[in-house]
Amino acid sequence: MNKEHKTTLTEKPSDMLLASVVTRGKGSQLMNLLRREGAAYAVCAFAEGTIPSHILHMLGIAKTKKELVFAFINQEIEEACYQSLAKEMKLDQTGHGVAFSIPLCSYPEPLTETELAAAFIIVDKGKGEDVLDLLDELELRGGTLLSAFGGASMTDILFNLPIQPEKEVIFMVAPKEPLPKMLRTLDEKMSMSQPHQGIAITFAITRAIGLYSEGKKGK
């Protein structure tokens, strides 16, 4: 236990958040792998993934069980992390999961431009699938859905008691280019710029592995 503390805290501070989505049950293996490579901190949450299959979607089987892992790493170990992700978790092959890195405020250098960005959308429970459908229309697929709680204030009162409202979070990686359009659509269809309708943010990512590309899907 003590040894672990030394390796993580005395190193350089983390400047990157590595996010990864894998099949349910693989999260622990992934966290152990990242910790071994020197990640400062790793957490795992249950999430639901979307299947890019129209037949299953028609049947209503549109979700698979996933795990979402967040880990703090720094630039020095990034390369090693990605290599072992490709080797041990087979993320370099399609269908085994995705991973990408988000630069944190402490990130030292100017961002290297990639074609990709990540989006983070928070809406009330039940609206998550509406968002996914909207994204689907924009040819943005592969979002991950998380259940969450909370909000700006505990405004909802049920049975005379204040409660934490249920939320859904959609998390996805996409090409940079259609993202402004996505935000516009979300505003038009779900009036997100109004208060209490949800939040959508996009941010740059520096590296990604395991994404579905349109070419691979053959469409």
């Binding site: 709680f149 505990m154 934490q164």
Partner: peptide
């Protein structure tokens, strides 16, 4: 339970 939750 999850709709009447006061803390997480």
């Amino acid at each position: 339970s999850s709709k009447t939750r006061r803390s997480t």
